[in-house]
Simulated assay, not measured.
Amino acid sequence: MIPSNRVLAAGMLSAALALAASGSLVRADGAPHAIPAPARDEPAHKAPETIVLAGGCFWGVQGVFQHVKGVTRAISGYAGGALATAHYDMTSRGDTGHAESVAVTFDPAKISLGRILQIYFAVAHDPTELNRQGPDEGSQYRSAIFPRDAEQAEVARDYIGQLDQAHAFAAPIVTRIEPGKSFYPAEAYHQNFLALNPDYPYIVINDLPKIAALRRLYPSEYRADAVLVGAAAGR
């Protein structure tokens, strides 16, 4: 069941659609904006790579990365807690340690980890909001990176320091680096939610502007057709 804070008045839908189409609907802290590329990135390699990213409701984060060239899979799920509590109704309480997350698998020959992180910080969410994102509040909506290895963690940590030093955002970045945590796919009905429900009010208000920002800020990385995951990806 979808929490009530994700359901907006139906009467707002038409206006929101028009705003999203025009690109004038933006985050509360202002429009997503270009930020410096990471000064440090991973060495080029050929093996597919996965990094787990949390930035509020996983619908929008998954939706953004499904439109990024070089991303081969983006699965919504939970990270930070135990397997036994990796369920939507439990995670929504905010006391399981989990964050709504997305496992982003990409081809390093087509897009680097650094570029993935640049899109994550600039477009996919607001990294200055602590334990919340837009209308959603609680630690399950925190900004967090769950690296798969030490190199991912170091690249992410260095990039956060670089962005803070450059004052890329109006407030300090609160994104946490949480290594050593397992990722658990979310229920099937959460997968591809943005792509399958583009008229859903929460998506229109909070997430379609992110897709528009991706297209505007990173046109060479934008792909019109989302990379969808099959039903087997969910539980």
Rank of each mutant, 00 (worst) to 15 (best):
A226M: 13
P147D: 12
G97L: 15
A37N: 08
P201H: 06
C57K: 10
S14I: 07
S112V: 05
I119K: 02
V71R: 03
A168D: 05
F183I: 06
A44K: 04
I205P: 10
V204Y: 13
G70K: 02
N5P: 07
G81A: 11
D126M: 08
L117Q: 04
V204N: 09
A170E: 09
R223D: 13
P147I: 12
A39G: 07
S182P: 05
G138L: 08
G70N: 08
Y141F: 01
L17R: 12
R157M: 03
L17N: 02
E49Q: 13
K69A: 09
T175R: 14
P147R: 08
L113Y: 12
G56W: 01
Y141S: 01
E42A: 03
V227Q: 11
A37E: 09
M12V: 14
G230C: 02
L228A: 12
A109W: 03
V26A: 05
P209G: 04
D136N: 06
N131S: 06
G55L: 06
S101D: 02
I145G: 08
H87P: 00
I75V: 15
E151S: 14
Q140W: 05
A79S: 15
L217C: 09
A99L: 12
G77R: 13
G60S: 15
A144Y: 04
L163C: 03
P108V: 06
D136R: 03
K69T: 05
P219M: 02
V68C: 05
S24A: 10
D199K: 15
A224E: 11
D126F: 08
A16Q: 11
D126W: 07
H190A: 04
L228W: 03
R115Q: 09
Q118C: 02
N197R: 02
G138W: 09
N5I: 10
S76W: 00
A226K: 10
A231L: 10
E154Y: 03
L217V: 09
A31F: 04
A103T: 07
F183Y: 10
S220A: 12
S220W: 06
V64Y: 13
A226H: 04
V26S: 10
P179T: 06
G23A: 14
H190M: 04
G80P: 05
G80R: 09
A16S: 13
P127I: 07
G63M: 14
Y159D: 07
K110S: 14
H98E: 00
A37L: 15
I205K: 12
H125Y: 11
Q152E: 10
R93F: 02
S220C: 00
D41E: 04
D158P: 00
P201L: 10
M90V: 08
P209N: 10
K181N: 10
A233N: 06
F58G: 01
A233R: 12
F65P: 03
L17F: 02
D29H: 09
A156H: 07
A231M: 11
D89Y: 11
A44V: 15
A109P: 00
D107G: 01
D107L: 05
R6Q: 12
A79L: 08
R216M: 03
V174F: 08
G60L: 14
P172R: 09
R73T: 13
F58H: 07
T85V: 04
I51N: 00
A37F: 14
L8Q: 06
A170S: 08
K110Q: 15
G97W: 14
Q140I: 01
V68I: 10
S182D: 05
Q165N: 13
I203N: 03
V64S: 12
E137D: 02
